[in-house]
Write a protein that binds this DNA or RNA. Structure first.
Lengths: 136, 136
DNA sequence: CCTGTTGTAACCATTATAGTTACAGGTATA
DNA sequence: TATACCTGTAACTATAATGGTTACAACAGG
């Protein structure tokens, strides 16, 4: 199982998208909703900021989305947090002297790539707005 | 990224399917091809055996597949090794007092389930025989 | 100035992973 | 039977990832 950063990122973006009172929207408040530490939130927000999904100003509470929720696909969020594109690890240095060992890595890469593409399609088909609609 | 057990399992099954000289097929030989420790191999084989994919006999070298490679889907292998069905972790106990926190878990579960189903389809569409064909 | 905030670096506890040692017990053969 | 080789499994360990935490510099606004 992959880490929970993707879930946390979606949670944070949902909060930013739905909270009207910006002065309320501090990293501490967000951390209270996510149930984690404010630093974890600020760290994640830093990543999302670098990816161009939102802005913030040092010293001032509040964050602003730079992309409309309906235009922000979950895949874009996934890329923003630099989630792994390979879901399954492939063991290192199988024996090249063996027929199987020699080609297994390339073969598995092919398999996993097709799996990954299927995932990508799903993530591309859903937007933050879809998530917000389901939170109602 | 998930662990490499799935890759190792496919590697092991490929070796068993393609090695004609059974007396050669020891856990040490397999470990040499996978590039790991014989105990890691035996441990994995124990799991595959419990799942009914192969047989072995204590004390005797060699393993036998119980399912034809063309009938063994990668999804079946994945289930055999009890791979996670949830790819992304969801953070624990978001704040129920918050609109987002209250519903985020269920919403994410829905999203991740659709993603997982897409993956399942891909894994179901490929068999061990397909892998063997690519190893040629 | 004082309070509250963001942005980061640094450190730590917990857990997962896979590698390793050790050994009990089965099998085959000289 | 003695020997050699194998499987099966428990137990331990080193390494790395994850996420929580402390600490503090820098900024904003009353």
């Amino acid at each position: 199982m992959v880490n929970s950063r993707f879930s946390v990122a979606i949670h944070i973006l949902s909060l930013i998208a739905t909270t009207s009172d910006k002065s309320q929207l501090t990293s501490e408040y967000i951390a209270g909703s996510v149930n984690t530490n404010p630093v974890v939130v600020r760290r994640m927000i830093g990543v999302l900021k670098k990816a161009g999904l939102l802005t913030s100003q040092s010293g001032i509470a509040g964050y602003d989305l730079l992309v409309e929720p309906k235009d922000l696909t979950l895949l874009a969020i996934y890329h923003a947090i630099d989630g792994p594109e390979q879901l399954f690890a492939i063991h290192d240095e199988p024996n090249p002297a063996c027929t199987v060992g020699r080609k297994i890595q390339r073969t598995l890469e092919g398999v996993y790539t097709s799996v990954w593409h299927a995932m990508e399609e799903q993530l591309h088909a859903q937007t933050l707005q879809d998530v917000l609609d389901q939170l109602r």
